Each structure stands twice: as C-alpha cells, then as structure tokens.
Amino acid sequence: MRLYFRYLSILFKSQLQYRTSFWLLTVGQFFVPFSVFAGLYFMFDRFGQLREWSFFETALCYAIIHMAFALSECFVRGFDAFSGLISRGDFDRLLVRPRSTALQVLGSQFEFTRFGRLLQGIVVLAWALYKLPIEWDAAKAATLVLMILGGVLIFAGIYVLFATLCFWTVQGLEIANIFTDGGREMAQYPLNIYQKWVTLFFTFIIPFACVNYLPLLYLLGRADGDPVRYMLQPLAGILFLLPCLLVWRIGVRHYRSTGS
C-alpha cells in the first residue's frame, strides 16, 4: 500500500503541473452528468412517479451509482487504459519488477479530475437524504457506505475483466462500455422497473442490484424479511471482483509481447 500511495502522490503532482487545465476539467466533470440528472428531474416533474418510486428515492439511487462510477474512473483508470501498455510493449517492463502486475497497472494512471463528477453525486445524495424521511442509525449508515464501495468494486471488476482480454486482442474492446457506462445508466434507476431477465442478469451475473437496488429497499424501510440480508448485499462486489482478478492472472501467464 505504501507503493500504491506513492503512485497516487506522483500522478497527482504531475496533473497539477497544469493547474488551470486541471481545475477546468474538474469543473467540466461536475457539470457533465447534469444533463442526465436534468432528464431524470423533468421526467418525474411530468409523470410524478416511476411505478412506486418517487423522485428523491430515485435520486438517491442515481447518486450512489454515479459516486461509485466516479471513484472507479479515478482509481481504476489504469485498467481502463490498459490496451495502451500492451500495444506499446510497456507491459514487459512491469513483468520484470518485483511487485504485482495488478498493483502496477492500478497505479499507472489516475484521473483526479473525476472528483468533479464525484462532487455532483455528493450534492444529489445530500439533497435526496435531506428530503427522504429515513430513520438513520449506524447500520444504515454503514450500508450506505458499503453500497458505494461495492459499486466501485463491481466497476473495477469489469475494467479488470476487459483489460485481460487485451492480452489476446491487443486493442481494447468498446463492448466494455456497454457494461460500464451502460451499467451506470441502467443502475441509476431501481431495477424493478425493468423486465425480469434484465433484473436477473444484473443481480446474479453483474450484481449491480446487490449494491444499489436491494440495499436501497432496506434504507427506505421496504425490505421484506431479515434486514441483515439486505445490509450484506453490497459484499457481492467483492465476490464479483475476485474471479476477475483470477482471470487477470490467467491472462498474465498467457501474455506474449507485441514486440513494440
């Protein structure tokens, strides 16, 4: 972890060399998601409810998944841009260093400007929590934190999985955006508004429901049965990430240099 934080420090200082550009990009990232949130607001302004969900309940769902996505874009960006290391032959240098390749790729790139997007999610989260009559306690606060962290782990797992494919394809595959950007857009609404097969896929294959929809029912007092089951659902993010890291190790063992 000392090496990881060293990576953070070096890249943060390098990005601050152009302070004006850094802050303009950060501000831009703050305003980019507003078009999506504005669409959400005007839809509820026109129709009132989405099934049984109110605007602020959906806004809470929106804020959690967008915060998780912003954090993953910031701290797991190395895997998202991994194809560049393969095509340039730079991954060879990582293999001869006495540290985990996953850690080195993770620390190869950070996008600190994504904190602008994170701040927008925090603003929406604070507004939604202020308007919703949630009776807070330590368990619910911990569940909210786990929901965000679990979402980060799921997005990280997707980045790792599609980065691994670069060992065979060299170039990155745009299909990954279906599950990252598309997953974010889909999970910003409660999953029970979709058809059943969509809900099943995003519960048992890519478990966005476990870090957003199901624990959200517990926060809003809609959970049926043992609330502990709903509180622990975000841990599915760990269960999703671990196989992805295993696939990564398999990919590393099968890596053949591009010769660049």
Results as ranks from 00 to 15, higher is better:
residue 126 A to C: 09
residue 103 L to H: 13
residue 149 L to P: 12
residue 135 E to F: 09
residue 118 L to F: 15
residue 140 K to F: 03
residue 88 R to T: 15
residue 88 R to S: 15
residue 89 G to F: 09
residue 147 M to I: 04
residue 166 C to Q: 01
residue 86 I to T: 00
residue 130 Y to S: 14
residue 160 V to Y: 08
residue 167 F to P: 01
residue 168 W to P: 01
residue 91 F to N: 04
residue 94 L to M: 11
residue 171 Q to F: 13
residue 151 G to S: 07
residue 115 F to I: 15
residue 170 V to Q: 10
residue 148 I to P: 06
residue 136 W to Y: 06
residue 150 G to N: 00
residue 95 L to D: 11
residue 163 A to W: 04
residue 150 G to Y: 00
residue 170 V to L: 09
residue 166 C to G: 00
residue 154 I to T: 05
residue 115 F to R: 08
residue 123 V to I: 14
residue 126 A to S: 10
residue 114 R to T: 13
residue 88 R to Q: 13
residue 154 I to V: 10
residue 107 G to W: 07
residue 106 L to E: 06
residue 169 T to Y: 01
residue 153 L to Y: 01
residue 130 Y to D: 15
residue 152 V to F: 11
residue 155 F to T: 03
residue 165 L to F: 03
residue 106 L to H: 02
residue 127 W to N: 03
residue 140 K to T: 06
residue 127 W to R: 02
residue 171 Q to K: 12
residue 116 G to F: 04
residue 115 F to G: 14
residue 103 L to I: 14
residue 106 L to K: 02
residue 108 S to C: 01
residue 169 T to E: 00
residue 168 W to M: 08
residue 158 I to F: 10
residue 168 W to R: 14
residue 168 W to C: 01
residue 142 A to W: 08
residue 104 Q to T: 06
residue 112 F to M: 08
residue 166 C to N: 02
residue 128 A to V: 05
residue 109 Q to V: 08
residue 152 V to Y: 03
residue 170 V to H: 06
residue 123 V to D: 13
residue 114 R to P: 10
residue 120 Q to A: 15
residue 135 E to W: 07
residue 156 A to L: 02
residue 111 E to L: 13
residue 123 V to W: 09
residue 135 E to I: 08
residue 129 L to P: 03
residue 135 E to L: 12
residue 119 L to K: 01
residue 101 T to K: 08
residue 125 L to K: 02
residue 91 F to H: 06
residue 165 L to W: 00
residue 134 I to M: 07
residue 163 A to E: 05
residue 122 I to E: 11
residue 153 L to D: 04
residue 88 R to K: 12
residue 170 V to W: 10
residue 103 L to Y: 11
residue 105 V to M: 09
residue 111 E to G: 10
residue 113 T to F: 15
residue 113 T to R: 13
residue 150 G to F: 01
residue 127 W to M: 08
residue 146 L to V: 10
residue 172 G to F: 04
residue 129 L to Y: 04
residue 127 W to S: 12
residue 136 W to C: 08
residue 142 A to D: 07
residue 139 A to Q: 09
residue 107 G to A: 11
residue 171 Q to Y: 13
residue 137 D to Y: 08
residue 116 G to K: 02
residue 94 L to E: 06
residue 153 L to V: 12
residue 109 Q to S: 13
residue 113 T to D: 14
residue 172 G to S: 04
residue 95 L to W: 09
